[in-house]
Design a protein around this nucleic acid. Structure first.
Length: 275
DNA sequence: GTCCAGGTTTTTA
DNA sequence: TAAAAACATGGA
């Protein structure tokens, strides 16, 4: 591991590593068993752990990379206050989820990962992504691999993806890789434009529906109002929000609220407390 | 053997 | 327009 860098990322109040890495938004950070998380971001390996009230990162890359990745230029406290002010269920979700950061993940990796995620469980999603990286990603060190580029995957045949055991998603992965590497889908442009335009463009891709498109917008394209609705969110919304609730009423940080709700629902939070 | 997993697409009524 | 069914796979 290119362990050149050692920085304090934030306070544990601002950044809870466990919640952030295990709330379902990313698939390449693992607890080594002692609360130290190891992961690879944009080709740089790192480990993150808490020391007292501080969260420390050691690894490659530079401070600017990690500052960006952990979205540290955004202060979440105003949004948290606003969510708590609504009271009831959303306040509970916010209290439970405080410390989660919305990670600004690499665009192509996010698109590819959430295509894989559809109708799949998290352990298997992680396994498929790990195999993909091991087979076709650039080696870093210590048996770690970068996420393979869209160009690399676009050069493969469908048969080369068979070892992933990703099932029917393989065709979607290849199709997306070709569209991204050819430039027919420009993820940088979709990050620079508005959320609705980005989601609309993503929806044109085969294997990308509303849920995946919103995941990509939120986690990969820096559209904080992205609001993916999966089976957990559907149930949480149905049981705790008014019918026809419009997530956009939660404001520009709606995606953060979504993450709190998702985390709370998955961790067995109470239900039927209408806001 | 059955059911489900951070869905999407295709088919059918 | 809406509801089924199909799509691959593996773990519970």
């Amino acid at each position: 591991m290119d362990k050149l860098l050692e920085i304090r990322l934030a306070s544990t109040q601002e950044l809870d590593p466990k919640k952030t890495f295990e709330c379902g938004q990313c698939f390449r950070w693992e607890d080594d068993g002692s609360g130290v998380y190891r992961g690879v971001v944009r080709g740089h390996a790192a480990q993150v752990e808490t020391q007292g009230d501080d969260v420390i990162l050691r690894g490659g890359g530079d401070a600017a990379l990690w500052h960006d990745y952990f979205d540290l230029s955004n202060n979440y406290s105003a949004a948290n206050t606003q969510f708590c002010a609504r009271g009831g269920y959303l306040a509970d979700c916010t209290s439970a989820g405080a410390g989660i950061r919305i990670l600004r993940q690499e665009r192509w990796e996010t698109l590819c990962s959430f295509i894989i995620s559809q109708c799949n469980n998290i352990p298997r999603i992680k396994k498929i992504i790990l195999t993909l990286c091991r087979l076709y990603g650039e080696p870093i060190s210590d048996g770690l691999f970068a996420f393979p580029s869209a160009e690399r995957i676009a050069s493969l045949s469908e048969a080369k993806l068979e070892p992933l055991r990703s099932g029917y998603r393989a065709a979607y992965i290849l199709s997306a890789a070709r569209e991204v590497s050819s430039g027919s889908v420009d993820l940088d442009a979709l990050s620079a434009c508005g959320r609705d335009e980005a989601v609309a463009k993503l929806l044109e891709m085969s294997g990308v529906g509303k849920k995946v498109a919103n995941c990509v917008a939120l986690y990969g394209l820096n559209h904080m109002s992205g609001f993916p609705i999966d089976t957990w969110m559907k149930r949480a919304l149905r049981e705790n929000f008014p019918p026809n609730f419009d997530p956009d009423t939660l404001g520009e940080f709606a995606g953060l609220a979504q993450q709190y709700i998702f985390y709370y629902a998955r961790s067995g939070g109470a239900r039927n407390e209408r806001i």
